[in-house]
C-alpha cells in the first residue's frame, strides 16, 4: 500500500515537474527571460527529485525486495526537490528584495546544500517547508496585486505541498500512522493544483520558430 501511494505521488510529481519545466524552458528559449530560466531549473529539479525517489521504489520493489526504500536514495531525491523549491522561493526573493539588481536577475546564486541520512532528510523537509511556505505567501501577495485567478491555484498548490512536507516530517515522530498517507495525498492534491493554471496556457497557438 505504501509503495503504491509513493509510486502514484512520485509519478505525478515527475510528470507535473516535467510539464511545467518544459513549458518554462520553451518560454526561456523564446523570450530569453531569466525568470523562466529559474522556473525551468526549479521544475526540472522537482521532476528529477521525484524521478529519483520513484526509481528507488521501483528498484526496491523489483530487484532488492528488502521491504523499504534505500534511505540514501530517498534523501537524494528530497534534496534535489528542495533545490527546486529553493529556486521558486529565490525567484520571489529577487522580485521582492532585488527588483533592480541585474546580477541577481541574470544567473542567480546556486544554492549550497552540502550530517545520519535520516537527519539530512529531516533537514531537507524542513527547508522545503520553509521555501514552499514562502513561495505560497509571495504568490498570494502577487494575486492580491494582479487578481490573476491562476495565482490562486499555484498558491493552493504550494501551500498543500508545504503542508504535505510538514505532515511528512511529523510522520517521523509517529511512524506507521495515517499521517504518512495523509502527507502523500496532500502532496498529490498540491501537484494537481499547480498543474491546473499551467494546463490553460494556450501553447498550441504559438509557432516556435527560431527568432
Amino acid at each position: 500500500m505504501e509503495f503504491l501511494f509513493e509510486n502514484i505521488l512520485n509519478l505525478i510529481g515527475f510528470l507535473v515537474g516535467l510539464t511545467i519545466g518544459s513549458m518554462s524552458y520553451i518560454g526561456f528559449k523564446n523570450t530569453g527571460s531569466p525568470t523562466l530560466f529559474r522556473l525551468s531549473i526549479a521544475f526540472f529539479s522537482i521532476c528529477v527529485g521525484f524521478f529519483v525517489i520513484w526509481t528507488g521504489f521501483m528498484i526496491e520493489d523489483f530487484v532488492i525486495k528488502s521491504g523499504h526504500i534505500e534511505r540514501g536514495v530517498q534523501t537524494l531525491g528530497i534534496g534535489i526537490q528542495t533545490i527546486g523549491y529553493f529556486f521558486i522561493a529565490f525567484s520571489h526573493g529577487i522580485k521582492s528584495f532585488f527588483p533592480k539588481s541585474r546580477y541577481f536577475r541574470s544567473v542567480g546564486m546556486f544554492p549550497l546544500f552540502l550530517v545520519s541520512l535520516i537527519h539530512i532528510e529531516n533537514i531537507f523537509r524542513s527547508i522545503s517547508f520553509i521555501l514552499l511556505a514562502y513561495g505560497a505567501i509571495e504568490t498570494m501577495l502577487s494575486y492580491l496585486e494582479s487578481r490573476k485567478k491562476g495565482a490562486i491555484f499555484v498558491t493552493l498548490g504550494l501551500s498543500l505541498l508545504a503542508f504535505g512536507e510538514f505532515i511528512g516530517w511529523y510522520s517521523f515522530v509517529f511512524p506507521e500512522s495515517i499521517l504518512y498517507y495523509l502527507s502523500i495525498s496532500i502532496k498529490i492534491a498540491g501537484l494537481i493544483s499547480l498543474f491546473i493554471p499551467v494546463s490553460r496556457v494556450p501553447l498550441r497557438k504559438i509557432k516556435f520558430d527560431e527568432l
Binding site: 491562476g150 499555484v154 504559438i206
Partner: peptide, 23 residues
C-alpha cells in the same frame, strides 16, 4: 518575427503571472 516574439512574450507573461512572477 517580432509578432511571433510578442505572442510568445504575452503567453509566457501570463504563465509566469500564475506563479506570481514577471518575466
Amino acid at each position: 518575427s517580432g509578432r511571433e516574439f510578442l505572442q510568445a512574450y504575452q503567453t509566457f507573461s501570463k504563465f509566469s503571472e500564475n506563479f506570481g512572477l514577471a518575466i
